[in-house]
Design a protein around this nucleic acid. Structure first.
Length: 477
DNA sequence: TTATATGATTTTGG
DNA sequence: CCAAAATCATATAA
């Protein structure tokens, strides 16, 4: 009873805050009825000791059941809900359904555009991502605690950090298309794994909370509406994680992409020395400038570039040599002179210098042969022009003896072959000479037969740079 | 700034 | 896959 009294006085102290309910008690106090006093005392006693009561399952259920079945329960429930609604929840309620986050939409769009989200875009990417999937280490916590939000978030960050490091350490110079695709697939895989886990976690947690609230609503004023709102709140919280996940994914894709594009677009000139070496090889194998794999490897090693760069270089060189043979041949002579000097010192090599000179010398011969005839048809496009020139040249050559004639000598390639005993066609892969002797006539099929013809048209200097005819190359937008 | 040189990529044909 | 040809995009010379 003493406790009750003290409690009572405390309640009295709270009266100011609680408005119109407590004054009744005060009035009651003024007019003490022993029985009433006793009742109130009991109630207060119960309240005071309620926290000491065991949470014994059976007992609790019993109490809840009792409460639940009380005839006043529905009314009380709705009233309390109403009060709660008015005092607290209405504030949150005012937050209307916000339109979909534009940031999230952008992220979604990008992920779809990059093929990370959305429908599978062909190609089995399963193997690539096994490691990462394992690394992401799913921990199937069925009991999801609040702290798991942060843990998950940290985990996701960690995963992407790891992924990004992988991209960093991968050899920058060797990013190929396949690498890009593989890595994109990896990102995609990780993203989907994580997104799946995210959804699962979100749903589990939501279900958990909803169940909890439902259970609680048996003894507390929790309206279904409030549960709904709670679900919304949970979704929003999880949306932050979703956003983070998507953002990280986008980031990873962008980094990967920029890296890839950088590798693709950045062009660094080779060193002077490398170009020198490549040119030496090219001009000293002018008749057949197709280095074998071994030769490519050696050149690559000497020049400090990759084999595919060597291949690119030779591809470009061949095509450009053909396109502009006059100029190229000056260069050829230059290199020929240089290597000739070197070869001269080396007495043992027979006729090496002569071979180098073949290109330039031969062009001169053709030019002489061509004489004053001009086969340049000005009104044609370059491509047709070349073809016409070639055809015209064939005509001229045949008129003046033709390829097969001895007087025509041989094309540069064939001359060179006499020295080198080498094959002719570009497509023969192996450098070793074929057993059968290639005939000089075959050399019309040589890699730049057409180019030599082109080179001999006109006086040489008037064709210089003609490949840049306006509007044909590089249509300048 | 423009024009050319040049390494790389894409397209095309076999 | 290889090579030619076309094309791109940048580096560098003018």
């Amino acid at each position: 009873m003493e406790d009750g009294q003290r409690m009572y006085s405390q309640q009295g102290g709270l009266t100011n805050m609680s408005g119109n309910v407590l004054p009744q008690y005060n009035m009651g106090q003024d007019e003490p009825s022993d029985q009433r006093k006793q009742e109130i005392g009991d109630i207060l006693q119960q309240i005071m000791t309620i926290t000491d009561q065991s949470l014994d399952e059976a007992q609790a259920r019993c109490r809840k059941h009792t409460l639940n079945c009380h005839r006043m329960k529905p009314a009380l429930f709705s009233v309390l809900c109403e009060i709660k609604e008015k005092t607290v929840l209405s504030i949150r309620n005012s937050q209307e359904e916000e339109p979909p986050d534009p940031q999230l939409m952008r992220l979604d769009n990008m992920l779809i555009a990059e093929g990370v989200a959305g429908p599978e875009k062909g190609g089995g990417s399963s193997a690539a991502a096994n490691a990462t999937a394992a690394a992401s280490g799913g921990q199937p916590d069925s009991a999801i605690e609040h702290s798991d939000y942060r843990a998950k978030l940290a985990q996701i960050r960690q995963i992407y950090h790891t992924e990004l490091e992988k991209y960093e350490q991968s050899d920058g110079s060797e990013i190929k298309n396949s690498d890009y695709e593989a890595k994109l697939a990896q990102i995609r895989q990780v993203y989907q794994t994580e997104y799946g886990k995210y959804e699962q976690a979100c749903n589990e947690f939501t279900t958990h909370v909803v169940n909890l609230l439902r259970e609680q609503s048996r003894t507390r004023p929790i309206a279904p509406k409030e549960i709904e709102r709670m679900v919304t709140i949970i979704r929003k919280k999880f949306a932050a994680i979703e956003m983070q996940l998507k953002q990280s994914t986008c980031e990873a894709v962008m980094i990967l992409r920029s890296r890839f594009l950088d590798a693709r677009r950045k062009r660094r000139n080779f060193s002077k020395q490398a170009t020198e070496l490549l040119n030496e090889y090219f001009y000293s194998h002018l008749s057949n400038p197709y280095p074998s794999e071994e030769a490519k490897e050696e050149l690559a090693r000497k020049c400090g570039i990759t084999v595919s760069q060597v291949s690119n270089w030779f591809g470009n060189k061949r095509i450009r040599y053909k396109k502009n043979i006059n100029k190229a041949q000056e260069e050829a002579n230059m290199y020929a002179a240089k290597t000739a000097a070197a070869a001269a010192a080396n007495v043992g090599s027979e006729g090496g210098a002569a071979g180098y000179n073949v290109g330039g010398g031969q062009a001169g011969m053709y030019m002489n042969l061509n004489g004053g005839d001009n086969y340049q048809s000005s009104d044609n496009s370059v491509g047709d022009n070349v073809q016409n020139q070639v055809n015209a040249l064939r005509h001229v050559i045949s008129q003046s003896g033709g390829y097969s004639s001895d007087s025509m000598h041989s094309t540069p390639a064939s001359m060179y072959e006499q020295h080198m005993n080498q094959q002719i066609t570009p497509h023969s892969r192996s450098q070793n000479g074929s057993p059968h002797d290639p005939k000089p006539e075959d050399s019309t099929d040589s890699w730049c037969a057409g180019a030599f013809m082109q080179g001999l048209d006109g006086d040489g200097d008037n064709y210089d740079g003609s490949s840049d005819e306006p509007g044909l190359k590089r249509p300048k937008i």
